[in-house]
Design a protein around this nucleic acid. Structure first.
Lengths: 319, 319
DNA sequence: CTGTTAGCGCCTTCAG
DNA sequence: CTGAAGGCGCTAACAG
């Protein structure tokens, strides 16, 4: 019976038929649980993302699912909600469920859990964010470069008081995008104004509040760079509510997965991360590592797309 | 040992301490797989949604996760991608994984799989969409009424050629929202123009294409009702790209989970479903049914929020 | 209170 | 090629 199901050879056709028929009659379905217990490994990939409401991650999910399904794996998805404790709890849970491996977008760039996973040869891939000091498979995008390109474009269009709203620097994405911003300013000889830089957890509500803070200053910025999808949508809302026009009163440029900014046409420049490709690459890396747990760790850096809109009237005037 | 872990009584404190210490020393972690095999049931809730990229469902996911976590359950999420076969496959998978129960947003309103689940006493709750002819727990929103309210508001603001872009009628949401649209027209004595009604899978690309179709007609609509989040965003994009103003060239009203329409201020009216509450209720119903598999099925209908913006100049003129 | 044991359903191995 | 048996890690039941 077992041999028939697992497609093993050495079974006569007659017996095979008989077994197949009985299976149908009894509406028998194999227990994956028992199988997992026996082989000490399931056909499940764990995917732990830090915010299921962020379209970047939903694209990642779709990609991982597509690759996994194609290779006969199911995906077990958890949402750590930018909470390190939840993240660790879910990792434990995945372990207890005997997942074949996991893909995680780490909430913080240092977390001892990952060292243990790697040492215990648990297949694991970090996506979107790096983990410091642990040699593991990683898929990220070119954050420094993309942020630098966007901010440079603002500068080249005549903006000088450029505010920044970034994710918390605990995650590598926040730190790297901040670095890109600083680099762009330095490169063009534009002074860095610390009072125009804010950071918070990457949620649209924070983007909204931090933008209002910037706009309320006695000398508000003439442009704002947003270092994350959700911060962007929050900033957009704040600027609209403040009754300001984009880009004439204040320009806006930054990360945008859903093309929100181009939809409402206020942005000079947006960055789109290759979310789907990142998810695919992560899933592929994971499957490779499941096959060969001792392969050397790989770090994949994918390129973001920087979309530039023709400059606005005001931008043209300034230039 | 087992008794200590499961918090059973009848264990001396001395022994309990000794066991606890040994557990720590060995870094022992119980296998949920073995446990599931033994008790023939896991502490996992299966959640099968039809589109992970739809913000409505991501809210549902968050809600289900929150309730589940609070009650000691983990959530196993799958994305059926509006594909009946994927949906059935995932249901089988959940069964094979011995989930404690599942919450599903059914892709089609008739699917024999659900009858079997209910007959076999598998705890299952339908969310967002109804399944015909199977007595099961269901959580939906007041689609007919909400759609009717939105369309009525358009009519009361002077619009007469009101187009509609709806999800496929196979899902109960599409059918019910269509009915709300028809009811509103009839109630106000406005003729139903079949050439202004379109439907497709609820994806933004479809909203985009169907809107362009409506706008390309020799007598285009003066307002469009969109029966789904993603269709709304697609319609918004199409209207923008066509260079038309909202609501002066064409008004837009419909379902919108993310407040996109109010963000860009073109909408007269939007409907927001109580996504989070729906998820909560579904999770609660499921947990109740897990406890008592023989309880009578409940159908919960939650109320949507209809947000009305002050009418635009043109709307005021018309009225 | 504590120690032992059977068996959940599967896969692998070994014997026929 | 086919049948039988052991054991994955756990819990429930039973015996001390």
């Amino acid at each position: 019976m077992s041999r028939v199901l697992s497609g093993k050879p050495y079974v006569s056709d007659a017996l095979r038929q008989r077994v197949l028929e009985t299976i149908r009659e009894l509406d028998y379905r194999p227990s994956r649980v028992a199988r997992s217990l026996r082989v000490q490994r399931s056909r499940i990939i764990g995917l732990i993302i830090s915010d299921i409401q962020n379209p970047f991650f939903t694209s990642v999910v779709r990609a991982v699912e597509d690759v996994a399904q194609q290779r006969g794996y199911a995906v077990f998805l958890c949402n750590s909600d930018e909470d390190v404790d939840k993240e660790s709890t879910y990792i434990e849970l995945m372990l207890a469920e005997q997942v074949a491996g996991m893909i995680v977008s780490p909430t913080a760039s240092s977390n001892e859990v990952y060292r243990r996973l790697v040492e215990q040869r648990v297949p694991v891939v970090a996506i979107d964010r790096r983990v410091d000091g642990v040699p593991m498979d990683t898929v990220v995008s070119d954050n420094v470069h993309a942020a630098c390109a966007v901010v440079s474009h603002l500068i080249e269009n005549g903006y000088r008081r450029i505010g920044a709203i970034l994710g918390v620097p605990g995650a590598s994405t926040g730190a790297e995008r901040h670095q890109g911003y600083v680099t762009a300013l330095a490169h063009h000889g534009v002074p860095l104004l610390p009072e125009l830089v804010r950071s918070g957890l990457p949620r649209s509500q924070n983007g909204y509040e931090l933008t209002l803070e910037l706009l309320a200053q006695s000398q508000p910025p003439d442009a704002i760079f947003t270092g994350n999808n959700l911060l962007t949508i929050g900033a957009l809302r704040a600027i609209h509510e403040a009754g300001l026009g984009i880009p004439d009163d204040v320009a806006l440029a930054g990360f945008d997965e859903m093309d929100w900014m181009f939809l409402v046409k206020p942005a000079l420049t947006v960055v789109m991360q290759p979310a789907y490709e990142m998810g695919q690459r992560a899933a592929e890396l994971l499957l490779e590592r499941i096959v060969d747990p001792d392969r050397a760790p790989q770090a994949v850096v994918l390129q973001s797309t920087v979309k530039v809109r023709e400059s606005s009237r005001r931008a043209a005037m300034r230039a």
